[in-house]
Amino acid sequence: MTGKSSITLPAILVSSLWLGTVSAGEAVEGTAKADKLKSCVEPTEVMRRDHFEFIKHQRDLAVHQGIRGSKHSLAGCVDCHARKDAEGKPVPVNAEGQFCDSCHDYAAVHIDCFSCHSTVPGEK
């Protein structure tokens, strides 16, 4: 226990140094667009089970058929589910404990999508 808190302290110092420069700080609950909405783009229980089917289908539609504006777009998930820090900066949606990480970490799912895809809401 004591060992753990002595590791966390420098980590907080480092992240507060970064605030306002490169990286976003601690995510504030309730700051994602999704936090103000009732339902996901499909019924929530369906999303819970099948979200990857929707995104992967959308991926092929977008790249091969040019249909990008769908409600199943990956950019859309990020846009709605990413939270902000205390200064209003978006926190990466796949950062530790954030929306796309929380269950995946628990279920030991590893996705590589965010090595290419932006993890914060985009320019519009």
Partner: peptide
């Protein structure tokens, strides 16, 4: 190499 910053409409990463 890995790409740190990308635009939403142009994803990009190492190895393609």
């Amino acid at each position: 190499a890995d790409v740190a910053a990308k635009l939403t409409h142009t994803p990009r990463g190492k190895g393609c």
